[in-house]
Write a protein that binds this DNA or RNA. Structure first.
Lengths: 135, 135, 135, 135
DNA sequence: GTGGTCTAGACCACA
DNA sequence: GTGGTCTAGACCACG
C-alpha cells in the first residue's frame, strides 16, 4: 500500500540547508513525533521527487542516510518502511527527547532575537501567534 | 587603538549555512538592533579570522557583500565602518523591520514543533526559558 | 551539448583592473549590447578559467556578483543563464544606456589626449581607424 | 622655484587603477606632450598630496618610479625636475610616439563599443563632443 | 557534468 | 596596520 499523503514533506528551496538534509531531519522529527509509526510506508522516491520538484537522487540519498541510521528499513519490492526500534511513546522521557530535537532551533531564534535587541515578550507573543496558526 | 571586542561574532562551524553568510546575517542583525551604530568600526578581517579560526578570505567575503549592500563602508587604511544611512531607530516601523528579520527562524521552529507533535504551551515555556537565560 | 564559444571573454592580465571585474563589466556590456540574450547559457566557470588561464574562483566570483545584480541566473546543475528581465532592445532609451556605459572610457581617452597635447582631429581619425578595424 | 599650478594632477579616486600609477602615467603624458619641459620643477610631494587629499607616500612612490625611469631627476634641496633627455619635440616622430601612448585607451574604448553593439558613427560623434568640451 | 565554499599562503595598494 | 586579489587544490551539493 503506497501512502498518498498529499504533502508529507516540504522543503525550503532557497535555503542553504541542503535538500537531502532537510528531508532527513524532517523524517526524524515525524518519526519522533509519532506521525510516522514503525511499519509505516514512506512515499516512494519518485513520488516525493515529483511533489517537491527535486531530483530523485536527492530523495534517494536522504532515504539512504536514514537507512544507515536505522530510522528506516528498505524492504525489497515494497519500499522504505519506518523501522520498529524499541521506542517508548507518550512517556516523559520521550517528550524530553523531542524537546531536545527542537532546542537548537529555539536557541538560534533566541540568539537572533538578542542580536536584534528585541524584547522577549514581544518575541514570545509573535511566536505564540505563529505556533497556533497553521496546524 | 585596537578594538578588543572579546567576541562580537560567533559561528556554528558544522552548520550547512556557509560561514560567510552566517557573518553577513549576524552583522545585519547587529546593525538593525543598534548594537553596531553608524560610524562604528568593525573588527578587522584578520582579527575576526583569528577569533573564529577561519580563513581571512571568508571574513573578507562577508564584509565585501555587506559593502555591496551598503550596510558597511570601506575606509582606506582604516577598515570597515557601519554605514550611516538614514535609520529611524526606536520607532514603530523599526520594530516591525526587526521582527520581520526574526520571523523565518520562528516559523521554522514552529514547523519543527508541529512535526514533533509537541504541545504549543510546552514549546512556549521552553522558549521563554531559553530567551531569558543567556543575555 | 557543450557550447564551444571559442573566446567569448578576453582579459588583460597585466592590468590593474581586477580580472573578476573585467569579466563583470564585459558581461554587462555583452548583455546590454544583446550579444548575450536572455536565456543564453554562459560558458561554465571551468571552461572560462581554462581559456583565460585563470583560477576558477576568479570566474566564479564574477558570476556570483552578476547574479547578485540580477544580470545572470543560476540554474542548479545547468549553469549560469542570462536573466530575462524586461529589456527594451533597439529603443532609444536603450542606446542612451549603452552610450552611458561607454562614456567613462571615452572621457578617459579625451583627458589623456589633452595631456599629450594631441590635436582633436588627429585623435578622432586614429579612433575612427581603430573602430572600423577589428570587428 | 616651486610651481604653483593650481591643479597639475587629477585622479579618479574610485578607480581600481592605483593612484600612484595614475600619477605616473599622467606625468609621462604631460612630459610627452610638452606641458612639462626638461628642467621644469614638479610640485612637491606634500603639495600634490594636499591637493589630491592623498597620502604623501603615494605621491612619493610615483615620483620614485618616474626617477627610476629617468623621466624625472631628484635634485637635492630643490625637488624633482623633468629630466632633459634627448627629445625631438614638434617633429613627426614625436607625434607618433604620443599617439602610441594614447592608442591602448582608444583600443579599449573601441572594444567596449563593439561589445555594446554601438554604431561607430554614434560613438565617434560622442567622442568628438567630449574631446572639444573641457580643455 | 554544474556552481559553491573553504583553506593556506602569497603579493599589492594604501595609511 | 587596513582591505583586496589571486592561486592551487580540496571537498560538497545537485543533476
Amino acid at each position: 500500500m503506497t501512502s498518498h499523503s498529499p504533502q508529507l514533506f516540504s522543503i525550503v528551496p532557497g535555503s542553504t540547508e541542503p535538500i537531502y538534509r532537510q528531508l532527513v531531519e524532517q523524517v526524524r522529527r515525524l518519526v519522533a513525533g509519532g506521525q510516522l509509526a514503525p511499519g509505516d510506508a514512506l512515499p516512494s522516491v519518485r513520488e516525493v521527487a515529483l511533489q517537491l520538484a527535486v531530483n530523485p537522487m536527492t530523495v534517494s540519498k536522504a532515504y539512504g542516510l536514514l537507512e544507515l541510521e536505522s530510522v528506516l528499513e528498505r524492504r525489497r519490492g515494497v519500499g522504505m518502511l519506518v523501522a520498529d526500534r524499541p521506542r517508548k511513546r507518550s512517556g516523559e522521557g520521550d517528550i524530553n527527547a523531542r524537546l531536545a530535537l527542537l532546542r537548537p532551533t529555539l536557541e538560534r531564534a533566541a540568539r537572533e532575537a538578542r542580536e536584534l535587541e528585541l524584547d522577549p515578550d514581544t518575541v514570545l507573543s509573535l511566536f505564540k501567534a505563529i505556533l497556533k496558526e497553521s496546524p
